[in-house]
């Protein structure tokens, strides 16, 4: 439960930072975390403070709650031998599911492809995709699985720990003001997939692969795609998994992971 408390401090730090920056910029204070109208330089400060807050939580949790160094604690979730192959397995599975969804929507006319940026900007965006995918997935898996879910599993049974971990993971994507809130069930399904992958394997390789593979496809496809179908059915923007069919795909992928790793023969 201590991980939950530590994580809850992050939005508080975000809000306090935002409040200080709003006051500095002479703007009215607000309850919602939304830096949209802050000047660019202060927006940057806000972002850096947020990253530092997450990094601090990650770094202080192991010594505070397990009397271990961060390196020793987190290394325990990356067993070696053949286990790293789980990451490749997860990534391939996530990529296959997402690409099949996109193919189905291409055939059914629910998406349209067009290059949305000039060549230079496009090349810059695409070049950063693999690293961003791995880094983003790595940080989120450390935070929500290695730290939060593992901590919850230590004090609660799996049937309570997983739903709490999933809700916190999904909710964390809505702490800041966002454009779409209807994507919440999609984040719940996504959190369930990653959490089950972690519970089944007791390591981060599989969930990291699933997460990074997903981000990789979403970000690589994003500059080329426009959704023309109903959002509730096929999703929108970087949320193809948030439509009904996307959620169904996530449930089936979770079932695949259960069959591969969860069923003890």
């Amino acid at each position: 439960m201590r991980a939950l408390v530590l994580l809850a401090l992050v939005p508080l730090v975000m809000w306090l930072t935002q409040t200080a920056l709003l006051l500095r910029a002479g703007l009215p204070v607000r309850l919602r975390i939304n830096s949209a109208d802050l000047p660019q330089r202060l927006k940057w400060v806000n972002r850096v403070v947020t990253y530092v807050a997450f990094a601090t939580v990650l770094l202080i949790y192991p010594p505070l709650c397990h009397s271990e160094s961060p390196l020793t604690y987190y290394r325990g979730f990356f067993p070696l031998g053949l286990r790293p192959l789980e990451m490749l397995h997860g990534a391939a599975a996530a990529i296959l599911y997402l690409v099949l969804l996109y193919l189905a929507w291409t055939i059914s006319g629910n998406v349209r492809f067009e290059v949305r940026h000039d060549a230079k900007r496009l090349a810059r965006r695409l070049a950063g995709v693999p690293l961003t995918a791995i880094l983003a997935a790595f940080v989120e898996e450390l935070l929500f699985r290695a730290m939060l879910l593992n901590d919850l599993l230590a004090s609660l049974n799996v049937y309570l720990a997983v739903p709490i971990g999933v809700v916190v993971f999904a909710g964390a994507h809505y702490v800041r003001s966002v454009k779409r809130y209807w994507t919440f069930p999609g984040h719940l399904a996504l959190g369930t997939l990653f959490s089950l992958a972690f519970v089944y394997t007791g390591a981060l390789w599989l969930s990291l692969g699933l997460h990074a593979g997903g981000i990789l496809v979403l970000m690589a496809v994003r500059p080329f795609i426009r959704y023309t179908g109903p959002a509730g059915l096929v999703g929108a923007s970087i949320f193809p998994y948030a439509g009904i069919l996307g959620i169904l795909a996530l449930i089936l992928l979770s079932l695949n992971m259960w069959l591969s790793y969860g069923v003890v023969s």
Partner: peptide
């Protein structure tokens, strides 16, 4: 233009799907 783009996108997505399926089966 639409047909050409959908064709190119379909080909690229199909190749990625085939490679991902190959990796999946190879690992299992």
């Amino acid at each position: 233009r639409h047909r050409r783009r959908q064709f190119v996108a379909g080909i690229i997505l199909s190749i990625v799907a085939i490679v991902a399926a190959f990796v999946l089966l190879l690992i299992r």
